[in-house]
Design a protein around this nucleic acid. Structure first.
Length: 580
RNA sequence: GGUCGCAUAGCUCAGCUGGAUAGAGCGCUGCCCUCCGAAGGCAGAGGCCUCAGGUUCGAAUCCUGAUGCGACCGCCA
């Protein structure tokens, strides 16, 4: 249920009635008609721009349309008044009964209040994290994991059929480097001394992998040439790394539906098939690229390569898909991977990348556009850096100094809930400050605490009421008589709850889960405000002398808790019932 | 040089995909617990929404350009 769309439907009905009477021409596009909360509550409960957006196509004055529309809408039993204001706004005031009925409706629906059919079951693939399987994940990966996961949850809540996917970069040269590093650890496990080349992963986390390899194969590869062991060690090592990564993700509460191996694209004809698909559209050719404008690399020399004509789909230059030695560039498997997603029937694709991959957005979008003939939209979210702080001081990461912060470190230090909420308080294209002390601080400065505190306070009221023998089950609360709910603070809180389904749709449409965090903070603020009003005006306290009145007050509070719980659920944060 | 992103209160940031007098937290000033959790709340002060054009009934929001900051820039993923 969504009060804003309900009223919008009423507005559209009134417009249709005016058309039937000849007061408005037929065939008007009503898509731009919105019903939204006015910025200033004094203007009413809801405002519509209908008269203003219809004025021009209808050839009429906005205020004239608004006057007629207002008269029609005033007949709606839910609408108390409709007033024309400003350049042609129509300010609507709803009957108190509408707000009074909201808590019961929310309690009946539970956390499903706010669910939307916006997605209409469309299949969406959200690809995120996709860290190279060469070591433990660091804080940057954590942001990607959390944001991707929250987008996936948000879209699922908004009615999309969502698949969470991880692309394992196990096909490139870096996994060979990993394999050699693990082989070194394997040699060390046999008490041999080894040389570490510059290109290697000397981290201690590979020691147990070397030990495990020794335990598995014994000494059979000690003197074997690389051709013999490279392939099996690579597989052994990447499996071990993926186990590590899966554990790290689980610690954050992230669970993928599908892991897609880049390696599975090689030698299976999948890359060739994807490229053939492009070739069939006339988008593959042999050619020589110009050097990048303004910055010619020292060793630049013209080379003929196999190119993808990405410029036909919005890119700035065509992109190489095959190196001059005939092997694929990294772009080729990326094309094949996205081709695979398209052929699996996804209607929309979302990729979560680090900001350092910004240069690949256009070519990737071009590839998806070409492969799907423009049918499948690809949205790429670029995540800015996470800046770490400790006690307000910048915290520099350094592998050598031993202050390299892994994803697991973050979870161990602040917990998955605090980490998740904090990472979701900023939009993706803004850098994020992450202070290890502030995210666990118990004060209103810390939004996660502030929201949790509101939820805990409500739970506290429910416990207290139950102790006094008041039945606070949702079913009983939903049946409470809320006709006494007339104070403007209570009605305003109900109004905030009415915005939840609308906010879900806006956030989902934009793939912006941070809006949920922002909304929850506002909702918590309203709850705290009402709570404190109870200090001066005892009639606003949730628990009253009379059980029936108590139930009607508690119904509103409980509805707030339900929405907080639903919102936190989307963010992957567990609502707490008491602060300790 | 090119591409992309960002620019809003002293600081950190929201701002509903174009709406009315631009919001919150911190910091500053002054208040509120005999009362469900004060771990909270209320009020005040604080703005050229970087700048210049444009689009229209209307712009912090969309377009163009400028300035500043950041990321990236042909066989590395």
């Amino acid at each position: 249920m969504n009060l804003f769309s309900d009223i919008r439907t009423a507005v559209l009905g009134a417009i249709a009635a005016m058309q039937a009477e000849g007061a408005l021409p037929e065939g008007l596009n009503t898509d731009p008609v919105t019903v939204e909360p006015p910025r200033d509550p004094l203007h009413g409960d809801m405002a519509t721009n209908a008269a203003m957006v219809l004025a021009k196509p209808a050839g009429l004055k906005p205020r004239d349309i608004a006057e007629t529309l207002a008269a029609k809408l005033a007949d709606d039993p839910r609408i108390a008044s409709a007033e024309v204001a400003g350049p042609g706004f129509l300010n609507l005031r709803l009957e108190n009964t509408v707000w009074q009925g909201l808590p019961a409706a929310i309690l009946r629906l539970g956390r499903d209040y706010g669910r939307s059919d916006l997605g209409a079951g469309l299949k969406v693939n959200v690809e995120y994290v996709s860290a190279n399987p060469t070591g433990p994940m660091h804080v940057g990966h954590a942001r990607g994991a959390i944001v991707g996961d929250a987008i996936a949850s948000l879209l699922a809540y908004a009615g999309y059929d969502v698949t969470r996917e991880y692309y394992i970069n196990d096909g490139g040269a870096q996994v060979d480097v990993l394999a050699r590093s693990v082989y070194n650890r394997y040699l060390e496990a046999h008490d041999l001394t080894v040389d570490w080349p510059a290109e290697s992963y000397p981290g201690e986390y590979l020691e147990p992998v070397g030990e495990a390899l020794k335990a598995k194969v014994g000494d059979i590869w000690l003197n074997a040439p690389e051709e013999v062991w490279l392939e099996p060690v690579r597989e052994f090592a990447t499996d071990a790394m993926m186990d590590l990564i899966r554990e790290d993700l689980a610690a954050l509460g992230v669970h993928m539906d599908h892991f897609f191996s880049e390696k599975s694209l090689y030698g299976t004809g999948k890359i060739e098939a994807a490229i053939e698909s492009l070739r069939a559209k006339g988008l593959i050719y042999r050619g020589v690229l110009q050097p990048p404008k303004g910055k010619t690399p020292e060793d630049w020399e013209p080379r003929e390569q196999t190119l993808f004509k990405s410029t036909e789909h919005g890119d700035d230059v065509d992109r190489p898909i095959m190196k001059s030695d005939g092997s694929w560039t990294y772009f080729a498997p990326d094309i094949a991977y996205h081709y695979d997603k398209i052929t699996r029937g996804f209607d929309q694709l979302i990729d979560i990348f680090g900001a350092d991959h910004g240069g690949y957005v256009k070519r990737m979008k071009a590839a998806v556009s070409a492969l799907s003939d423009g049918r499948v939209p690809l949205d790429i979210k670029l995540l800015q850096l996470v800046k770490l702080y400790k006690n307000g001081e910048p915290f520099k990461m350094s592998k050598r100094a031993g202050t390299f912060v892994t994803l697991r470190d973050v979870v161990d230090m602040v917990g998955a809930d605090a980490a998740r909420f904090q990472m979701l308080t900023r939009k993706n294209d803004a850098p994020l400050d992450f202070d290890f002390d502030k995210v666990v601080e118990q004060s209103k400065e810390n939004p996660i605490f502030y929201v949790q505190y509101a939820h805990a306070r409500i739970c506290s009221v429910l416990r207290k009421a139950a102790e006094q023998g008041i039945d606070v089950s949702d079913a009983t609360l939903a049946a409470a008589d809320t006709s006494g709910m007339t104070h403007k603070a209570e009605l305003a809180l109900a109004g905030k709850l009415a915005e939840w389904p609308r906010l879900v749709e806006i956030a989902a449409r934009n793939h912006e889960p941070h809006r949920v965090a922002t909304y929850l903070t506002e909702l918590a603020s309203d709850l705290h405000g009402l709570w404190n009003m109870g200090n001066d005006d005892t009639s606003l306290r949730f628990i009253q002398d009379d059980p029936a009145t108590s139930r009607s007050k508690i119904a509103l509070a409980r509805a707030v808790a339900v929405v907080i719980s639903a919102g936190l659920g989307i963010l992957g944060v567990t609502p707490v019932e008491e602060m300790r």
